[in-house]
């Protein structure tokens, strides 16, 4: 996602610096041992180093939750917001400064429950950013309450006799929204797949939504246990415009060649629950992007004043 950066100072200067993964590391992450968020953080730092993203031109935005601590652990700019509202903040940053590389990190309660309204509209705005849903199927930070993605029947502190409703599927939901442009799924326990998916998402010009199946060893240790252990339950979606990983094919027996520009097929695959599917469901760079549609000319103070005076003339006595 190389952006040309308007007229702001400091852009376009030859940069001699090179960055290692360590250069993007913030303070030691305080997630529980075994939490899938550690793996996502490592994957993201790997991406930053691979793409040599300038730390000062990169912004991580989050809401509130265990997963939303993410920006504190990356040495870039960050905005740790409020519960459910990462996307409006990220939208504002991108509208003001299209030159910045923006990542939004959310939990499943954050994105799919309290922030669900923003989620739908952000998909439709299709602003160029990389969006990570760290989906542990539970409210982690507040200690095990049912989330929209909690599997039906799974007991929590608020629904101790099991979650009443079928789980909401974030992939289906995203694919259902007008102007969706990139939808992928990966898992914290397949680092190379995670890395490739993040790369594809980051390279996509638009709202790149990645649902990351994320293990919570404390509150949902069983939910992803089978999927992580039994490779037979997984199907890799493979395509040269999505993710291809020859090494992984040796581990996972099921691979499906899927053209990510085919939205009908993407929706069909998302709906059929026979397998856990990892890969790019849908990617089409041709969708309208709100920040491009809303690009405005840069004006100097003097130009503004001349235009404003003409405006005020309309009200002259």
């Amino acid at each position: 996602m190389s952006e040309n950066c308007g007229t702001l100072m400091g852009c376009g200067v030859e940069d001699e610096r090179s960055f290692s993964m360590d250069d993007y590391s913030g303070p030691l992450a305080r997630w529980c041992p075994g939490c899938g968020d550690h793996a996502v953080l490592a994957g993201v730092q790997r991406l930053l180093a691979k793409e040599q993203l300038k730390p000062e031109r990169t912004v991580f935005v989050s809401g509130i939750g265990c997963s939303s601590r993410f920006p504190h652990y990356v040495d870039t700019y960050g905005f740790h917001g409020i519960h459910g509202r990462a996307l409006p903040i990220a939208t504002g940053i991108k509208l003001a400064r299209p030159d910045l590389d923006v990542f939004a990190v959310m939990g499943d309660g954050d994105c799919c429950s309290i922030g669900a309204g923003h989620w739908i509209h952000a998909i439709r705005y299709n602003i160029n950013m990389t969006v990570l849903l760290l989906d542990n199927n539970i409210y982690g930070l507040t200690k095990k309450q049912t989330s929209p993605t909690t599997p039906q029947g799974f007991a929590s502190n608020t629904q101790p006799r099991g979650s009443f409703l079928p789980a909401l599927d974030p992939i289906q939901t995203t694919l259902g929204v007008t102007n969706a442009s990139f939808v992928a799924q990966t898992a914290d326990w397949v680092p190379s797949h995670l890395a490739q998916t993040l790369e594809a998402a980051h390279a996509h010009p638009g709202f790149a939504f990645v649902r990351i199946l994320q293990r919570c060893p404390v509150f949902t240790p069983t939910i992803f246990e089978e999927a992580a252990m039994n490779t037979d339950l997984t199907e890799l979606l493979e395509h040269e415009n999505g993710v291809t990983d020859e090494a992984l094919k040796g581990v996972y027996p099921h691979t499906l060649y899927h053209d990510p520009t085919d939205i009908q097929e993407a929706r069909r695959l998302a709906e059929s629950s026979s397998k856990v599917r990892l890969g790019v469901f849908y990617a089409d760079p041709g969708h309208a992007r709100y920040e491009e549609l809303r690009a405005v000319p840069k004006r100097t103070a003097e130009e503004k004043i001349a235009l404003l005076n003409a405006e005020i003339d309309r009200y002259a006595v």
């Binding site: 912004v59 917001g81 409006p88 903040i89 939208t91 504002g92 003001a96 400064r97 923003h118």
Partner: peptide
Amino acid sequence: GVALGASFAG
């Protein structure tokens, strides 16, 4: 939220 993000960004 959008206003706040824009302000944060300068």
